[in-house]
Design a protein around this nucleic acid. Structure first.
Lengths: 239, 239
DNA sequence: CGCCTCTTTGAGCTCAATCAAGGTGTGTGG
DNA sequence: CCACACACCTTGATTGAGCTCAAAGAGGCG
């Protein structure tokens, strides 16, 4: 009975996958193969999905909600390396390694769902499909592009970085209006940008006062997108 | 005659490729296929290989020397996104896109050599070889790992970042002793770490005075590796 | 010889980190 | 049900690492 349930849930998940670009050219039958022995994981806020350093025996795709990828340093503070939103793959890149190790930890941000696929399926099914690999590669290069952008912003003032992050996050959920569809705390923003919570708060409070953004229940809403984008163009005067 | 020359040069280059891990499992015959219509580009210091924003019709592998990947911002300062050393591929990740555009510019650092391969060869030969694609993917994930590491160092003091960079660069040329095998200016270090030249100089001058490093002709030599590594562990005291 | 790149040093200033303290809402165990 | 812990947000005061600006010396090159 439980097994039957799982099958049903999996079937439903497969249909969801069709919406994501990576699988846009797949049929349901394809997906059934590709996701063989897959399992839908339902996570609560702050649940851990993968632990950095563990041997990686599975990977997967974010179905709904969001997961943050963190890398913890010896002392307390960890860095958020990436926010994974629906359609994002987690750990797929390392599946082709001999004995893969998760390079980062993954935590759920709010209630989320994840389609977990065993490594074996990857080796047996994914490897044979260049089209899939390329799609993953293009996801990867998007990710790299983002990171490069972030790196090139290191010299920029904090307000620019925050603005950039908000705009970026908003773009991912284009269809859902001006509110970020995931609970994003100021601490998380700080951990992602490599700054302190207090500084982030100071800037965002300012924006809130000016009516540029609004926060309710950790759901950030951007009221005046133009103003946020204007922040991005605060380029120090060039001679 | 010229063509013959080119063929000879190419043949020699193919042999060099055998030393790199990506091709470790290839035969010379394989390589001849993979590098069909390839061409060895000889670059001088500061020569540009690829221009950010241009349509990408070729990619390739660094044979010797080094290239820096830079991303220039609207105002003057550009960021160095990656240092490519022998065995590194450039632009291979974007070859599978419809109409790829170089996302960064590539400049030679000192005299360097690059094996340039047309996009067409990629589409006809590389695509069919999952093993190659995986090797590229693993290069990519190494690159991502590095960037993540760099991101997680954003909060660290500048000295830690510099130390990290030096150790990282040294590890790439493991066999060649304690000197970095590429001309690396302080400006370039600054551009890579997102800091100012002056700050980099201040820290490195200090190290030079202490006899930890030595610079001759932009060749940085690490005299006391332990001391540099010790810098990495300057973890702010935790309560 | 003038131009360019790279390095160096000093002085002043600024952004954001740190420290400190307080507020709110939620879960949890006595 | 209260107390306590915990996660998150907020504000103020202080401080320092590193940026900016300025000025100059040292090769290398056409």
């Amino acid at each position: 009975m439980v097994i039957l349930d799982k099958q049903i849930v999996l079937q439903a998940a497969l249909k969801e996958l069709l919406n994501f670009q990576i699988f846009s050219r797949c049929t349901l039958k394809d997906l059934a193969e590709i996701c063989a022995n897959g399992e839908v994981v339902v996570s609560q806020h702050r649940d851990i999905l993968y632990q950095m350093g563990e041997v990686a025996d599975s990977f997967g795709i974010v179905l709904s909600g969001a997961y943050k990828l963190t890398r913890s340093s010896p002392n307390g503070d960890d860095t958020i390396v990436h926010f994974c939103t629906p359609g994002d793959v987690i750990a797929a890149f390392i599946m082709s390694q001999e004995r893969p190790i998760y390079p980062v930890s993954s935590f759920a941000m709010g209630p989320s769902r994840f389609l977990k696929i065993p490594k074996e399926t990857y080796l047996r099914k994914w490897k044979e499909r260049p089209d899939l690999i390329f799609n993953i590669q293009s996801l990867l290069s998007t990710r790299i592009g983002n990171m490069q952008m972030q790196l090139s912003l290191t010299k920029a003032p904090l307000s620019v970085k925050i603005a950039h992050l908000l705009v970026d996050m908003l773009n991912r959920f284009e269809d859902h209006g001006s509110a970020l569809k995931l609970p994003l705390t100021r601490k998380e923003i700080a951990d992602n940008l490599g700054s302190s919570v207090e500084s982030v708060i100071r800037i965002m409070s300012d924006w809130t006062k000016k009516g540029i953004i609004e926060t309710q229940d950790q759901q950030i809403k951007i009221l005046k997108l133009e103003k946020v984008i204007a922040e991005l163009e605060v380029i120090p005067s060039v001679k």
